[in-house]
């Protein structure tokens, strides 16, 4: 079963400053945590892909109209709801997907305190089940 584990910008517990304001060691610890998790999932044969998206500043919303399409440039007032990135995993059960999501939610923030970021877990639709 494939699952998308989606991460959004603002959905963290408490008030966390942007990463550029963290202590450098905390930034490094967070990056290491994410890379280690990817490596572990790859080793276990569970990682399909891990991708990050460019920031809200570069986001655009496009809407077809009768004339030229309407393009709204970011950042938007609701930027915190924007998708920041995802992991796609291929696992045996939904429980395992939830376990991975919980791990990823624990990524360390300032002073090593877990960020407790909300991770949205969505199963990817596949071919006809047998």
């Amino acid at each position: 079963m494939k699952f998308m584990l989606l991460q959004h910008y603002g959905r963290v517990v408490g008030d966390v400053p942007p990463m550029t304001e963290w202590d450098p060691e905390d930034v490094q610890a967070h990056i290491d945590f994410q890379l280690d998790l990817n490596e572990e999932l790859r080793e276990r044969g569970e990682l399909v892909e891990a991708q990050g998206l460019t920031g809200p500043e570069l986001a655009k919303i496009v809407l077809a109209t009768d004339g030229a399409p309407l393009v709204t440039d970011g950042p938007f007032p609701e930027s915190k709801e924007l998708l920041a990135g995802w992991r796609m995993v291929d696992v045996e059960t939904e429980e395992r997907a939830i376990e991975i999501a919980a791990r990823s939610s624990e990524g360390p923030g300032p002073n090593g305190v877990p960020l407790r970021q909300e991770i949205e877990v969505r199963q990817v639709m596949g071919p006809i089940e047998r």
Partner: peptide, 29 residues
């Protein structure tokens, strides 16, 4: 610090974003 942060917001390269974020963080510290 402000300029490194801005650059990190605007890059489309993940390794570069990590690098720029760390440079900004080092100055903030």
């Amino acid at each position: 610090h402000a300029e490194y942060s801005r650059a990190a917001e605007l890059t489309a390269s993940l390794p570069e974003q990590r690098y720029l974020t760390k440079r900004a963080a080092r100055l903030a510290a």
